[in-house]
Design a protein around this nucleic acid. Structure first.
Length: 479
DNA sequence: AAAAAAC
């Protein structure tokens, strides 16, 4: 098996890698580092969690160790779609460049220009940036990109989703065409293919395809939710969420609750807190210091539940969480895969529960189409059950209890008609055996777990790379 | 329809 010391990395970089505890590169690292060191363009098709970040930081540090940056003329540039990702990449540089004299600047929004300007003026070897802030600096005349030797585009497909492609194209055009380009994307949409054809020169293409799939390592469930009345649906949905959290009990050690909209992130987080659940919101409207602090608290295990918009769905290197709960079904089916990919990492157990309101059913269909399987239905634990009479009624026609059933929202009643779940008072958090009927992952996972551990800093999704992402182009076209 | 990202 290839080892890091066979990849021609500089001794100082190698030392930092070894000190971080790694000896065996991941496939994307083994594939991308040698051509990157030779100065070739690289097209990496890989998901977060494959060791992607180190596959460009390590060769970059090796190459940049020689030479020095001039004022306002950075020698390399890494573009990331979100501020958090950019910060993560910066940390990765710190880890591996500790034995090398290398200056770097993190150019992201939400923080003052002042410090960033100061760094740029002094000259930086590595610029890590989100597109908006980078262009902002450029337009203020503070920055010249004509000295860029290496440019990295990270998470290009997400850049596409976020409408950054024009910015990326502009930035490409501001850098010298002699630059080396390292380009990473989880998928290859036609638009991404076009960009790579335009801006990459004879790239070495590294595609990471893995066997394991999301659907096999994550225990997935969906709760079909229906509010009793329009004006109560919102609060009832939050109650359903609380009940889900209660029912998971101690198995839920930490979780991310995803909402589709920022307002809901705020409302849900506030609601959970009100009911004594340790939760905090994160989304793009919160100021950067709050975002950073919240995320850090969550990483440190000081915060139990992170209520998040899709800012946290992809790429973020949060620790493996025990649960992902979708307060809403994401409207892009692929986001579902990214969201649930925050759990069950490195071969550990993971559980994903999605709340599906009637208006989300179309989205749920799309998700199931993408997964090519049905997600196990769970009864709504938040639905107050009435008398035994209604109970059998509900069993016969669970769907039918809408307008007519104006149910007292505060009353706690015993849950009925839940075959798998033991009956319990609402306050008890009794563990329930996962009943989704999904078989666990196959062999291999132990092995993976080990190498994921080896590569803790950069590994994200671990074992359960979703099958559609793991497929090669040919397979994808075929299906 | 929303989120992310620039002030």
């Amino acid at each position: 098996m290839t080892q890091f010391n066979e990849l021609n990395l500089s001794p100082k970089v190698l030392q930092a890698v070894e000190e971080a505890g790694y000896t065996i590169p991941t496939p994307i690292q083994a594939g991308a580092i040698p051509p990157a060191l030779e100065g070739k363009d690289v097209l990496g098709i890989a998901q977060t969690g494959t060791g992607k970040t180190a596959s460009f930081t390590l060769p970059m540090i090796t190459k940049l160790a020689r030479g020095r940056a001039r004022a306002r003329m950075p020698r390399s540039l890494v573009l990331c779609p979100t501020r958090e990702l950019a910060a993560q990449v910066a940390e990765n540089f710190d880890t591996y460049s500790k034995n090398v004299k290398l200056t770097k600047a993190l150019l992201i929004g939400g923080v003052s220009f002042k410090e960033q300007d100061l760094l740029i003026d002094k000259g930086v070897d590595v610029l890590i940036a989100t597109p908006g802030r980078l262009l902002d600096h450029f337009e203020r005349g503070k920055l010249l990109l004509t000295g860029i030797e290496v440019m990295v585009v990270d998470e290009a497909d997400r850049m596409l989703d976020m409408g950054f492609i024009p910015d990326i194209e502009r930035i490409f055009s501001l850098t010298p065409f002699t630059r080396q380009t390292l380009f990473f994307s989880a998928t290859m949409a036609p638009e991404i293919e076009r960009i790579t054809n335009t801006f990459l020169q004879a790239p070495v293409r590294i595609e990471v395809a893995r066997q394991a799939t999301a659907s096999e390592t994550i225990d997935q469930h969906v709760v079909m939710f229906k509010g009793s009345r329009r004006d109560r649906a919102d609060s009832e949905k939050r109650r359903t969420l609380r009940k889900i959290i209660e029912e998971e009990g101690e198995k839920l050690t930490n979780a991310i609750v995803f909402c589709n909209r920022k307002v809901d992130v705020d409302v849900v987080a506030k609601s959970l807190k009100k009911y004594g659940v340790d939760a905090a919101p994160i989304h793009g409207d919160l100021d950067q210091s709050t975002r950073t602090r919240t995320l850090e608290g969550f990483r440190q295990g000081e915060l139990k539940i992170l209520v998040a918009s899709d800012v946290a769905a992809r790429g973020l290197d949060v620790p493996s969480v025990s649960h992902v709960i979708n307060f809403d079904v994401p409207s892009h089916a692929e986001d579902y895969v990214h969201r649930i990919g925050r759990t069950g990492r490195a071969g550990r157990e993971g559980k994903a529960i999605t709340i599906c309101a009637p208006k989300d059913e179309k989205n749920l269909e799309d998700v199931e189409k993408l997964l090519q399987k049905e997600i196990a239905r769970l009864d709504d634990p938040g639905k107050p059950k009435k008398s035994a009479e209604t109970k059998s009624d509900a069993e016969a026609a669970p769907q039918k209890t809408e307008e007519t059933a104006a149910e007292p929202s505060k009353t706690v009643e015993k849950p009925a008609q839940t075959p798998k779940t033991a009956e319990k008072p609402a306050t008890s958090a009794k563990p329930e055996k996962g009943s989704g009927g999904r078989s666990r992952s196959r062999g291999g996972s132990k092995d993976r777990g080990k190498s994921d551990k080896d590569d803790n800093k950069v590994v994200g999704m671990g074992d359960h790379l979703p099958s559609f992402i793991a497929m090669s182009f040919e397979e994808r076209r075929a299906s």
